[in-house]
Design a protein around this nucleic acid. Structure first.
Lengths: 147, 147
DNA sequence: TATTGTTATACTCTATAACTATA
DNA sequence: TATAGTTATAGAGTATAACAATA
């Protein structure tokens, strides 16, 4: 048996890789937004629900969503009017309102996550080693914060 | 010298990796939007300019930006009123309008791309082999379309 | 005084539907 | 008829500034 004739495939330039990251980021959000839409939710509403594994203040949501605090009022208003979250005044500091998922909100999160996961079928086809590599590389390129 | 005591680092689950992809995608767009904002442009305006390495019809832009064609009118209007793009009727099919970057528009694209690149300093610290791996893995997870 | 959340405002992005001009 | 682009509309996200309640 001869060696397989795989061309050397020259390493991509950092710029080429930046373009691939743009493509991947767009593809991820396209998928996430489509799956949120199946539950009648917008991208921001879906992202907000996803952040509420634990109760969070309005302020904290604004930081995690990287937008001004004034926007969170409207987003949470719409989620609350659909019964997916509720607000509770923080007993320790009555200026703070903590946002919690309702039972229905938790179901919506699980539904969206499951749909996104099944849409990313490529993810499940990676070996353990490949998953470890991808996690490590993404961690190197995007070291901190963000949602 | 003893073996380095690096813990085995168990492979992440596909779900854990999905969360990391969400984090990376958010970080990418946060960076891109911030760099576009430094030129007074919104995320969509920046993305639109980035797609115009070659002239494209309004229809084609709508597909690449994954939004309804009616939105492109406004986005291109605003870019055109700032002198960054211009419309030209396609000589072969007069229904079609091709959008082209102006000289100023090209400069804006280069500026944004350079800023994003310098913000992604982690990218330039990857070895050639790591860049090849990341490109290949992203290609496996997100096989086709999108911006 | 400083912080949290809200409101008011104006602008951008978004999908839908109806329209025009071309083909 | 069908397609490319536009307009009109309504809803959602966005930053800014001003405000009330609380600390």
């Amino acid at each position: 048996m001869t060696e397989p004739t795989v061309p050397p495939a020259p390493a991509p330039t950092p710029t080429r890789l930046m373009d691939e990251l743009a493509r991947a980021a767009a593809a991820y959000y396209r998928q996430f937004a489509a799956m949120a839409a199946e539950s009648g939710l917008t991208l921001m509403q879906g992202k907000t629900l996803s952040l509420l594994r634990e109760p969070r203040s309005m302020r904290s949501l604004a930081e995690l969503l990287a937008c001004d605090a004034s926007n969170i009022t409207g987003i949470v208003d719409r989620l609350e009017s659909r019964g997916l979250v509720r607000r509770e005044v923080d007993p320790a500091d009555r200026r703070i309102k903590n946002v919690l998922l309702t039972e229905e909100g938790e179901q919506a999160v699980h539904r969206i996550r499951a749909r996104v996961m099944s849409g990313l079928s490529g993810l499940e086809r990676l070996s353990e080693e490949e998953r470890s590599s991808l996690l490590a590389l993404l961690g190197r390129v995007f070291p901190e914060g963000a949602l």
